[in-house]
C-alpha cells in the first residue's frame, strides 16, 4: 500500500471515517485533561479507574447485549462506585489512596473478564479490553463529541481554578471560593472521558489517550497551557496514524494508537529540551568534551 492509498482510506470507508472522527474529537478533551492528571500525580488512580469500569460494562453487556447506552451507564456506575469505595477505604483504613485503587481495580477487572467470558465470548472480550474503533455506531460518535465538547468547555471556563488546584489543593480549600468543587469537577471529567474513549481504545488502554500525550508534552514546554496544546497535537497525530494502521493491517485499534503515542513519548524523552536525555547529557557529559 502506498502512502497515498493510506491517506485516501477514509474516503472509501465509512467505518474508518467514524473511527477517525471519534478519536480526533476525543483527543481535544482527553489530552489537556491528561496534562492536569499528570500534574496531580493521578496517573495510577486514572489507570485503576479505567480498568474498574469493566465490570459495569460487562454486566450491562450480559443483560442488554452490545448496545451503547446501557454499557455507557454501566461504565459510569462502576467507575463512580469503585472510586467511592476506594475513597472510603482510604479514609477509614490504613490503605493509601493508590493502594486501595489498585486493590479494587484488580478485583473489578477479574470480575469483569469472568462475566464477559461467561456471557459473550473471546471476541467480545478482546473488543472490550482493547477497543474496536471500526464498529462505532452514530450514537457512540455523538457521545464522544458530547463528552469532548463538555470537557473543552469546562477546561476553558475553570482553567485557572483547575491549575491552582493542581499546584496547591489546600489553598483552594482555605481560600473559600470554589471549595472542593474543582476536585469534584476534575474527577467527573476524568470518568466521562475514560468512559467515552473505552469504545475506541478499550478499557485496558483508555487511559493511553489521556496520559501518554501529557507525559511526552512535559519534555517540550515549561508552561501548562503550552503543554496542553502540544499534547493535543501529539494525540491527534497518533490517533490518525494508529487508526489507519489498525485498519490496513487488521489489528485492534487501541494498541495501534497507543504504540504511536508511546513513540511520541520515547522521542520526547530522547530529544525534548526540558529534563530529557539531551539535558542529562549536556549537564553530565558537557564538561568532558
Amino acid at each position: 500500500m502506498t502512502i497515498f492509498e493510506l491517506f485516501a482510506l477514509p474516503a472509501h470507508d465509512d467505518s474508518v471515517r467514524r473511527a477517525l472522527a471519534a478519536a480526533l474529537v476525543l483527543c481535544l478533551g482527553s489530552a489537556p485533561l491528561g496534562v492536569l492528571m499528570n500534574l496531580r500525580h493521578l496517573g495510577l488512580v486514572g489507570d485503576a479507574l479505567s480498568h474498574a469500569i469493566l465490570p459495569g460494562v460487562a454486566v450491562a453487556f450480559m443483560i442488554f447485549g452490545a448496545s451503547l447506552w446501557p454499557m455507557t451507564a454501566g461504565a459510569l456506575v462502576a467507575g463512580v462506585l469503585i472510586a467511592g469505595f476506594a475513597y472510603m477505604l482510604t479514609r477509614i483504613t490504613r490503605l493509601r489512596e493508590d493502594t486501595s485503587f489498585t486493590f479494587l481495580y484488580l478485583v473489578a477487572l477479574a470480575f469483569g473478564v469472568l462475566v464477559i467470558h461467561h456471557s459473550g465470548g473471546d471476541e467480545e472480550l478482546v473488543h472490550m479490553l482493547f477497543g474496536d474503533a471500526f464498529k462505532l455506531e452514530s450514537a457512540s460518535l455523538m457521545l464522544a463529541a458530547g463528552v469532548s465538547s463538555l470537557t473543552v468547555f469546562c477546561l476553558c471556563v475553570f482553567y485557572r481554578g483547575l491549575v491552582i488546584e493542581c499546584f496547591d489543593p489546600d489553598f483552594m480549600q482555605a481560600a473559600g471560593r470554589g471549595r472542593s468543587l474543582m476536585g469534584l469537577l476534575f474527577f467527573a471529567l476524568m470518568v466521562i472521558n475514560l468512559v467515552a474513549s473505552f469504545q475506541i481504545l478499550g478499557t485496558l488502554l483508555a487511559l493511553g489517550m489521556m496520559l501518554l500525550p501529557a507525559i511526552g508534552a512535559q519534555f517540550w514546554s515549561a508552561r501548562v497551557d503550552a503543554a496542553m496544546g502540544i499534547a493535543i497535537v501529539a494525540a491527534m497525530v497518533s490517533a490518525y496514524a494508529g487508526i489507519l494502521t489498525a485498519y490496513s493491517y487488521q489489528i485492534p485499534s487501541g494498541p495501534a494508537v497507543v504504540i504511536y503515542l508511546g513513540a511520541f513519548c520515547v522521542i520526547s524523552v530522547l530529544i525534548g529540551p526540558r529534563g530529557g536525555l539531551r539535558n542529562y547529557l549536556t549537564v553530565n557529559c558537557g564538561g568532558a568534551k
Binding site: R160, F167, F171, G176, R223
Partner: peptide
C-alpha cells in the same frame, strides 16, 4: 505543595489574587 509545578514564579505568586480575580 507541588514544588515542581511547571509555572513561573510571578504566576505562582499571582494565585494569591484568586480571592479577588476568581476564574
Amino acid at each position: 505543595v507541588r514544588r515542581d509545578m511547571p509555572m513561573p514564579v510571578l504566576q505562582a505568586v499571582c494565585t494569591g489574587f484568586w480571592g479577588v480575580a476568581g476564574e
